[in-house]
């Protein structure tokens, strides 16, 4: 049976891992390779690296650290940040990343999803979606979220975008629920549940993990394939081996730690 995945997310800025609250006030968390190996040894199933400043600064992800990670890491990893062309994707994949995640550039030029899927297969095309509920009760997409001053609210409904992204060739969706991100009150189960209903490819929950119970809830109630978290892992508030033991105790299928 396919295991549910636990994915630490490492936000990268200027070659270091950082963490902010609600996408603001970034604090240095350490060296990329060191943290990658620490999470691999703790039993992480996959890692995501977000070069959070690449898109707002209008540049592509730095391939140097991608290659450094690829040399030492023996679990899959995904790279996001400023990938806006097939050539950008090729550079990151050739540097050793297993998947690339596209967010803002996919919104600006949706055809890019299909072009990358065509060139490298749908399995490596992850669409990251930053989503927030508006006053009228609709979930809508945000772009340029790496820099709060440049973040834009779009008229595009989150559920519509999830459907379109799959039609265009997305092999996986990461839904980041911005209202709950960094707050540690639990994943946005209502939104994830709604997205799950229209998402036939693997779905990754992001934003809000604060306790082991939140992981159990998101797997059980929103039926997501993977749960992503950052600060609770970086701070040591949740240790992955204990989290996995807890989930196994709850009858949720997860991979044993080596």
């Amino acid at each position: 049976m396919l295991s549910r995945r636990i994915i630490p997310c490492l936000d990268v800025r200027d070659g270091r891992v950082v963490k902010g609250v609600r996408f603001r006030d970034h604090v240095d968390m350490g060296d990329i390779v060191e943290l990658a190996l620490r999470y691999r040894n703790a039993g992480a199933d996959e890692l995501v690296f977000y070069d959070i400043t690449a898109s707002p600064q209008g540049r592509s992800v730095d391939r140097g650290w991608v290659e450094r990670v690829a040399r030492v890491l023996d679990i899959p990893f995904c790279v996001a940040g400023g990938i806006r062309s097939v050539e950008d994707a090729r550079g990151v994949l050739n540097a050793g990343a297993d998947k690339i995640s596209i967010n803002t550039p996919a919104l600006e030029q949706p055809a890019l999803i299909g072009e990358i899927a065509e060139a490298f297969g749908v399995q490596c095309v992850v669409i990251g979606i930053d989503s927030l509920r508006d006053e009228d009760g609709e979930w809508r997409v945000r772009s340029h979220t790496g820099d709060p001053d440049k973040t834009k609210a779009l008229s595009r409904r989150t559920l519509d975008w999830v459907v379109e992204a799959q039609q265009r060739g997305a092999g996986e969706i990461v839904l980041n629920c911005m209202a709950s991100d960094g707050v540690r009150d639990g994943y946005d189960l209502a939104q994830l549940h709604a997205v799950r209903a229209v998402c036939a490819v693997p779905l990754v929950a992001s934003g809000g993990a604060g306790a082991p119970e939140h992981f159990a809830a998101v797997f059980r109630e929103a039926d997501v394939d993977a749960a992503l978290a950052a600060s609770v892992f970086h701070s040591g508030a949740i240790a992955i081996p204990e989290l996995k033991r807890y989930l196994q105790g709850q009858g949720i299928e997860v991979r044993d730690v080596d």
Binding site: L2, R4, D45, Q123, A200, D225, R255
Partner: peptide, 15 residues
């Protein structure tokens, strides 16, 4: 073949 709860591509750790 995708079916209820079985997503394709098959992506992740399996026994």
């Amino acid at each position: 073949q995708a079916s209820d709860g079985i997503r394709v591509p098959h992506m992740g750790w399996n026994a």
